[in-house]
């Protein structure tokens, strides 16, 4: 009987052929800002919908000279961000950082960092539903036609219905944008708070939707306008209070429930920004000090395993 073949994976996990597929799609995406380029998305060793598009984009872009930062919900230490960072450390041997200003490639889910991005940086978004018209028209065959005809009436009708019903456009995340005056694009589920950061950003913004097999891009210094009406212009969400750890205002905040009597406090969603702002003002309540406090098992036994 023959010996079973060994299980061997490629360096960087993705094979070169797959990278070429992704790379070609990225270049066309940049040449047609906001247009969703179909690509032969491959399986990657994590569930579909958990960042497989972003991972394929990052893996096709990243090299030995890069510093990678991975955030989920603005934080470097959320479990999915940790998991993706570990994946790249394991299969690509890439160096990573938590500092926005040092990173050359930043993979993100649901946030754009507070620290302004610079030329030469690449922001890779994980995208669940790349089609901004999907919930108005579920058919790909139809939405493709609508984009070709630049027929976005459906979207404006939806936004207008919100206004007549609630007095506001009731869209708080994944708020649709118009890219370079031509394509309506889904910014991925970043809060509308982050939308203005996409406009004329010096960094290159790349979007990967693995399950839906689409890649799109916004080149640097490209117009990204959030949709609105003259009398009801787009208004990004704002917070009244500053972060209770670092004191920053004008940042996106997480609401942390502190008791069961309605108590809550507000802290930065962007952990890198918060850490550095806190140390700058000499706050001692550093975010890096805390330890994950979950017991390893439901019974609360500590260190069930090494």
């Amino acid at each position: 009987m023959l010996a079973e073949p060994r299980i061997v994976y490629n360096e960087g996990y993705l094979d070169e052929q797959t990278k070429r597929v992704v790379r070609r799609a990225l270049l066309k995406g940049i040449a047609i800002p906001g247009f969703q380029v179909p690509f032969a998305s491959r399986e990657v060793p994590m569930p579909r919908g958990w960042g497989t598009g972003g991972v394929q984009v990052t893996a096709s872009v990243i090299g030995p000279d890069d510093l990678l930062k991975v955030i989920d919900q603005g934080a470097d230490d959320t479990t999915n961000a940790v998991s993706i960072r570990q994946f790249f450390e394991r299969v690509a041997g890439s160096e990573s950082t938590t500092r926005t200003d040092e990173a050359t490639v930043i993979q993100t889910r649901h946030r754009i960092p507070e620290t302004p991005l610079a030329e030469g940086q690449i922001l890779v978004y994980q995208v669940p539903i790349p089609e901004p018209l999907r919930f108005l028209e579920p058919r790909e065959t139809e939405t493709r036609r609508l984009h070709a005809l630049e027929e976005y009436g459906l979207m404006y009708v939806k936004l207008f219905e919100d206004i007549s019903r609630y007095g506001h456009i009731a869209k708080t995340y994944d708020y649709p944008v118009m890219v370079n005056g031509r394509y309506v694009m889904a910014p991925s589920p970043v809060p509308s708070f982050d939308n203005p950061k996409m406009h004329m950003n010096p960094a290159l913004q790349l979007f990967g939707a693995g399950r839906e097999k689409r890649i799109y891009a916004v080149p640097p210094y490209t117009s990204v306008e959030s949709l609105g009406f003259e009398d009801f212009p787009f208004e990004p969400q704002q917070f009244d209070q500053p972060c209770q750890i670092c004191g920053s205002s004008g940042v996106y905040l997480d609401e942390v429930v502190t008791d069961d009597a309605g108590g809550a406090m507000y802290v930065c969603s962007d952990t890198d920004h918060c850490t550095r702002a806190a140390s700058a003002v000499g706050f001692r309540a550093s975010r890096t000090r805390g330890e994950w406090d979950f017991p390893a098992t439901g019974t609360g036994t500590e260190g069930a395993v090494q």
């Binding site: 998991s83 802290v267 952990t271 918060c274 309540a285 330890e291 098992t297 395993v305 090494q306």
Partner: peptide, 17 residues
Amino acid sequence: YVAVKGGEKAIANAHAL
């Protein structure tokens, strides 16, 4: 309040379990 951190440790524990 002390911010939660330690995703790496939590993941390692979960895998071992």
